Amino acid sequence: MTDPWFSLRLSLAVATLATLIVGVIGTAAGYFLAKSRFWGKDLLDALFTLPLVLPPTVVGFYLLGLLGKRGWFGQFLFAWTGWEILFTFQAAVIAATVMAMPLMVKTARAAIESVDPAYEQAAHTLGKGRWRTFFQVTLPLAWKGIAAGLVLSFARALGEFGATLMVAGNIPGKTQTMPLAIYQTTQTGEDTTALVLVAVLTATSLVVLVATNRLAQGRPW
Rank of each mutant, 00 (worst) to 15 (best):
F89D: 08
Q90H: 14
Q90L: 14
Q90T: 15
Q90E: 15
Q90P: 02
A91K: 02
A91T: 08
V93L: 01
V93H: 03
I94T: 02
I94E: 02
A95C: 06
A95H: 01
A96C: 10
A96R: 09
T97L: 05
T97H: 06
V98Y: 07
V98M: 05
V98Q: 02
A100F: 01
A100R: 00
M101I: 11
M101W: 12
P102G: 10
P102R: 09
P102F: 08
L103S: 04
L103P: 00
L103V: 13
L103A: 12
M104S: 02
M104G: 03
M104E: 05
M104R: 04
M104C: 04
V105S: 05
V105E: 10
V105P: 06
K106H: 12
K106W: 04
K106L: 12
A108Y: 08
A108I: 11
R109W: 05
A110R: 15
A110T: 15
A110L: 15
A110E: 15
A110N: 15
A110Y: 07
A110C: 12
A111R: 12
A111T: 12
I112W: 08
I112L: 07
I112N: 03
I112M: 06
E113C: 06
S114C: 07
S114D: 10
S114V: 10
V115F: 08
V115Y: 02
D116A: 02
D116P: 01
D116L: 09
D116W: 01
P117M: 05
P117F: 06
P117R: 06
P117A: 09
P117L: 04
A118C: 09
A118P: 06
E120R: 08
Q121Y: 09
Q121H: 14
Q121K: 14
A122D: 01
A122S: 10
A122G: 04
A123T: 00
A123I: 00
A123L: 04
H124D: 00
L126C: 01
L126Y: 00
L126E: 03
L126K: 01
G127E: 11
G127L: 12
G127W: 07
K128G: 01
G129V: 14
G129S: 14
G129T: 14
R130A: 08
W131E: 13
W131G: 03
R132G: 07
R132H: 13
T133Y: 01
T133L: 00
T133I: 05
